[in-house]
């Protein structure tokens, strides 16, 4: 199954979003939240640790990572290289909240990482109203 990694400059923001998507998919999709606190920011190290924790969960064979701002994306992509996560963690260019919702919904119906990442990216194109 595909898991989801949420990376935010603020750990509280990532945790709050995890709470929301856990509720939406009834906990069916493994979700790990990482982020900064003091100081704020996403480090490569915390992404690697979060990805390893996600991939260690039973039944998870790949993960899709989402970030809040550009710096989080840079850290996510660097973590894939440094943590040797190629093919294990796919990074989605997606809005964090809508992308996370779309990602867990796609993962919940058994989609693989490419389709989950695509669903997250497409969520950015959906009008809100």
């Amino acid at each position: 199954m595909t898991g989801v990694l949420l990376a935010s400059h603020s750990k509280r923001l990532a945790d709050g979003l995890k709470e929301l998507v856990d509720e939406l998919c009834h906990g069916a999709v493994p979700v790990v939240a990482v982020g900064g606190g003091h100081p704020l920011g996403v480090s490569v190290e915390m992404v690697v640790e979060g990805a390893q924790a996600l991939l260690a969960q039973p039944g998870v064979d790949a993960g899709v990572g989402l970030g809040d701002l550009g710096g989080a994306l840079v850290a996510l992509e660097a973590a894939v290289e440094v943590g040797h996560l190629e093919g294990k963690l796919l990074i989605a260019d997606a809005p964090l909240v809508e992308g996370a919702v779309a990602a867990v919904m796609a993962a919940a119906i058994g989609e693989g990482p490419e389709a989950v990442a695509a669903a997250a990216a497409e969520a950015g194109q959906l009008p809100k109203r």
Partner: peptide, 8 residues
Amino acid sequence: VGGASGAL
């Protein structure tokens, strides 16, 4: 170094 600077 957090954020983009550290990763870059």
